[in-house]
C-alpha cells in the first residue's frame, strides 16, 4: 500500500503511512489500554458471568426436562399396562357374566319348556278325550240314524222290521 504516495503534511512525523506516524502512538496506546481495561471489567464483572449462568441454567433446565419426560414416559407405559390388565380382567369378567346369564336363561328356559310341554300334553290328552267322545257320540248317532232309516226303509217296503236283525246288520255294516 505504501506505493501510493500520500503526504500527511499536517502530521508532525511526515511519514508516508499514518500507521508509521510515531507521534500518534502514545495516544493510540493510551486509549487502547483504557478501552481494553473497560471492556475487560465489563465482561468479567457483568456480561460473562451472566451469560455463563444463563447457559448453565438452560443446560440444567434441559437436563431436568429430559429427566421429567423420561419419568412421564415410564408412567405412561405403566398406565398403559394397568389399562391393558384392567381391560383383560373386564373381558374375562364379562365372559363369566355372559356364561352365567346363559346358564340361568337356559335352566329357566328348560323349566318353562317342561312346564309348557306338560300343559300341552295335558291339553292334548283332554282334546283327544273330547275328540274320542265326539267320535263315539257320532258313531252312536250314525248307528241310531242308520237303524231308524233301515227300519223306515223296511217298513216302506212293507216288511216288518226285526229290531234285532236290523241292529246286528247295521253294526256289521258300520264295522265294515
Amino acid at each position: 500500500m505504501a506505493d501510493t504516495p500520500v503526504e500527511t503534511g499536517a502530521e508532525a512525523g511526515g511519514a508516508g503511512m499514518p500507521q508509521l506516524d510515531f507521534s500518534t502512538f502514545p495516544n493510540q496506546i493510551f486509549w487502547l489500554v483504557v478501552t481494553l481495561v473497560v471492556i475487560y471489567l465489563i465482561l468479567s464483572r457483568v456480561a460473562l458471568p451472566r451469560i455463563g449462568a444463563v447457559l448453565a441454567e438452560r443446560q440444567g433446565t434441559i437436563t431436568n426436562d429430559i429427566a421429567a419426560a423420561e419419568e412421564l414416559k415410564q408412567r405412561a407405559i405403566e398406565a398403559e399396562a394397568a389399562y391393558d390388565k384392567a381391560l383383560a380382567d373386564a373381558r374375562s369378567e364379562a365372559g363369566k357374566i355372559v356364561a352365567q346369564a346363559k346358564a340361568d336363561i337356559q335352566s329357566e328356559l328348560d323349566v318353562q319348556m317342561a312346564k309348557a310341554d306338560a300343559e300341552i300334553a295335558a291339553q292334548t290328552a283332554e282334546s283327544e278325550k273330547a275328540i274320542a267322545d265326539i267320535q263315539a257320540g257320532a258313531t252312536d248317532a250314525v248307528k241310531a240314524v242308520a237303524k231308524d232309516t233301515a227300519k223306515e226303509i223296511i217298513a216302506a217296503f212293507g216288511g216288518k222290521a226285526d229290531a234285532k236283525a236290523v241292529t246286528a246288520a247295521v253294526t256289521a255294516r258300520m264295522k265294515g
Binding site: 507521534s23 500518534t24 502514545p26 495516544n27 493510540q28 496506546i29 493510551f30 486509549w31 487502547l32 478501552t35
Partner: peptide
C-alpha cells in the same frame, strides 16, 4: 493543536 497521549482523537471515539 498537537496530539498528546491524552488527547481525545478519532481513535478515542471509535474505541468508545
Amino acid at each position: 493543536g498537537p496530539i498528546h497521549w491524552y488527547t481525545v482523537t478519532n481513535v478515542t471515539m471509535w474505541m468508545a
